[in-house]
Every structure is written in structure tokens, then in C-alpha cells.
């Protein structure tokens, strides 16, 4: 039942739940019989730093890090980070991005010039889904803090792992009081992906 090796990059800024997402992902793949490696790379500082995780699943995973140009999917909770790590995607890879900007501190503190983010993102030649997740969650009366599990829901549609296994993995990785809302957000994410896929 195992598909070919799957390489995923999950990224965002500190506090957006990148590490939790990598735990949920890794656990879901493990439960489905894959070998998995998931490596979180977290910069200095407690809040607001760039965070990226390499998640690899397959029959047998050797390196914990993905080579540039070999990721199947890049899941980004933030647009600057999507662009920063975009070179990890393979040509036919899929870019899933939350339509949210967190301006880097080097720009707000005037140490570096800003870039034309939307234009540069637009110029990337990948299949992409850039979605304003907080507004979708708002429509469903779900807090935007569940953006990460929503996006995992979208990503889950590109894997052969059953929805039940995903939800189990979410349940095991979040505290009891937040389970229901996380799973709700996850389901909305799956539905949205389905809808978008049908539109195309």
C-alpha cells in the first residue's frame, strides 16, 4: 500500500505551529507503516523566527534532510517563508501557502529592503494554492489558531493515508481540550482541497 517516497517541507514563523504539524505528520506516516524522518530547524529566538521542517516518508528514509528541488509539497503558513524555502520544491511540486504576511524583522527594523513578495511568489513556476485561511476559518466559526491543522487537512488529500489515521494522530499530539476544534479545522481543510481540485 506504500506509495513512493514522499518529501514535504513545512514552514512558517515561530509560534505558528510548524513543529506540532511535523509531529502530527510524522506520527500519521508512522501509523501507516512508513519509515519517517522529520527534522525541525528553528532559528535563534523564542518568537517570530523562521522555522522549517523537513518531513520524509517512504519504505526506507536515509537522510533526514531533503535536497533542493526534491520536495513534493511545500506547506507554508506564511508567504515570505514560502518564498524562502521554495527552491526545495521539485518542478512538478505543489505549493500550498497561507495568504498571510509576517514582515521579517530585518525589514521592519530597516536593515534590509523589502521585496515585492506577491510578484516574486507569482513568478514561481509551481502548481500552487494560495489561500486566505483565516477568512475561511472565520466563515466556519473556527479560530485562526487552527490554521496549521487546516493546512494539514489540505495536505492530507495528497497522501493515501486514511482520514481516520490523521485524526488519531492529531488527537495524540494536541491537548484534550483542543482536539475537537483541531479535527474540525482539519476536516474543513480537506473539504476545501477537494473543492479546489474539482474547480481545476
Amino acid at each position: 500500500m506504500l506509495v513512493d517516497d514522499l518529501n514535504l517541507i513545512v514552514c512558517g514563523v515561530g509560534g505558528q505551529g510548524v513543529v506540532l504539524s511535523s509531529d502530527i505528520l510524522a506520527n500519521a506516516f508512522l501509523k501507516s507503516g512508513y519509515d519517517v524522518k522529520a527534522t525541525d530547524i528553528i532559528g535563534l529566538g523564542q518568537r517570530g523566527g523562521s522555522v522549517v521542517t523537513h518531513v520524509r516518508a517512504g519504505e526506507k528514509v536515509i537522510s533526514p534532510l531533503i535536497k533542493k528541488g526534491e520536495a513534493d509539497i511545500l506547506l507554508s503558513f506564511e508567504k515570505y517563508e514560502a518564498l524562502r524555502w521554495s527552491r526545495y520544491l521539485k518542478e512538478e511540486g505543489l505549493l500550498i501557502v497561507n495568504d498571510k504576511k509576517v514582515t521579517p524583522t530585518s525589514v521592519t527594523e530597516k536593515l534590509q529592503d523589502d521585496i515585492d513578495l506577491d510578484r516574486l511568489l507569482g513568478e514561481l513556476d509551481y502548481e500552487r494554492m494560495i489561500i486566505d485561511i483565516s477568512s475561511i476559518l472565520r466563515d466556519d466559526e473556527i479560530s485562526s489558531k487552527y490554521t496549521n491543522t487546516f493546512m494539514l487537512g489540505m495536505l492530507s488529500m495528497k497522501t493515501s493515508i486514511e482520514s481516520r489515521v490523521w485524526e488519531e494522530s492529531i488527537g495524540e499530539n494536541v491537548t484534550v481540550g483542543f482536539r475537537e476544534d483541531n479535527i474540525k479545522a482539519f476536516r474543513v481543510g480537506r473539504k476545501l482541497f477537494q473543492m479546489k481540485a474539482e474547480e481545476n
Binding site: V13, G43, L44, G45, G48, G49, S50, S63, L65, I66, K67, K68, G69, Y80, L83, R84, S86, R87, P104, T105, S106, V107, E109, L111, Q112, D113, D114, I115, L120
Partner: peptide, 25 residues
């Protein structure tokens, strides 16, 4: 893995790096 591939096998990634402002702590 990229560094090893480039230095031992001579494989250089063709695509240009994108410059994104860094996040200072």
C-alpha cells in the same frame, strides 16, 4: 546532501536562489 552532491558529483542546481529578507531574533 546538497553540498555533498555539488562537491563530489559536481551537480549544481540550475535554479537561482530567491533572496528573502532574514528574520532577526
Amino acid at each position: 546532501p546538497d553540498i555533498i552532491e555539488e562537491k563530489i558529483l559536481g551537480k549544481v542546481k540550475e535554479r537561482e536562489e530567491v533572496r528573502v529578507p532574514f528574520r532577526l531574533p
